[in-house]
Design a protein around this nucleic acid. Structure first.
Lengths: 166, 166
DNA sequence: CGTCGATACATGCAAACGCATGAAAATCGG
DNA sequence: CCGATTTTCATGCGTTTGCATGTATCGACG
């Protein structure tokens, strides 16, 4: 009820985002309600997951911040809590005295794997029946393209002028 | 870097969601940083927007709750704040003594339109260059399909068994 | 080498959030 | 018609979040 085929590009982009956003909300609602997120909040799991995907095992706090939808200070405290729970360990960055490196502990890794398995099952039971394999691949392609175009780095500061003039 | 073409359907679904989620995070980051959300938080705007799209003008609080990624209590207080700021008005539902109806005030409607315009510009400057019109329409189609399959209603209670067995 | 701005992370504090619960109205079952 | 259950929204309370700021290090430049 909106893709007439010939509408303004601006409207089209807005409706595309609206649709993507609503779909994300709908899926996220179900996932959050699931049993997988009793032990860790979704943001916390996101951190554990990102760490688990990191090849070297160690990840800088600021890099982590690019992946997660959290302010720097909130991430700092979230990590603090994860450390207090024994799920991650902090370490001063060897090459940068300001930096902090993070790594999953054995326990953190185990918990991530455990929740990850549940999480993946939940997801596939939501996404699997909704779209064909080809559609899923296409959706993946399009969202990846969008994400890479938007870029991970939000250009930190520049309040109000990072958008092409006018 | 992951769509080999022949991977397990479970993995495919998980990666599709992962990709969708990351794209949403990346776009949302940029939008939140933009100048459009100085006056109202993103969740607050979402409420104003949803109300503006409501044909009758009036919307029940619980229906609103389906669209927004917030707990019932948080929405209740968010609306309370919006009312205190004169952006919406509450009214007891005529046919249901428990219910509360919401409507934008003149001021709320004006603010929604103002921010909406900015918001739409921001979005189109992010999404527009990223995907062709055809790709945007396809992305819209796929996300709508996903959303409708997932369904708006999370089936409130049933902790742990709303997922088809196994 | 000393100064100055930028970057990385931590922290004080007020605002916002979710969970558990409460009150009031609706609905269901005898 | 009445009591039990459910639904809808509000509220107390502890936790989490973001903004502003503080502290320390890095990098550039004279």
């Amino acid at each position: 009820m909106a893709s007439d085929g010939n509408e303004s590009p601006i409207r089209l982009a807005a409706e595309t985002w609206e649709s993507l956003f609503r779909a994300q909300v709908a899926v996220m609602r179900r996932l959050q309600a699931g049993p997988a997120f009793r032990k860790v909040a979704i943001n916390e799991y996101d951190v554990l997951f990102t760490l688990s995907r990191c090849p070297s095992g160690w990840l800088r706090l600021n890099e982590l911040n690019d992946h997660v939808l959290l302010s720097q200070s909130s991430l700092s405290r979230l990590v603090e809590r994860l450390e207090k729970r024994g799920l991650v360990v902090r370490m001063a960055a060897p090459d940068d005295g300001r930096g902090v490196l993070l790594k999953l502990t054995e326990e953190g890794s185990a918990l991530q794997k455990e929740i990850g398995r549940e999480h993946v099952r939940d997801i596939s039971s939501l996404v699997g029946p909704a779209l064909t394999a080809a559609e899923q691949r296409e959706l993946q392609r399009l969202t990846e393209k969008l994400r890479h175009s938007v870029g991970a780095r939000p250009a930190k500061e520049l309040p109000g002028k990072y958008l092409a003039g006018k």
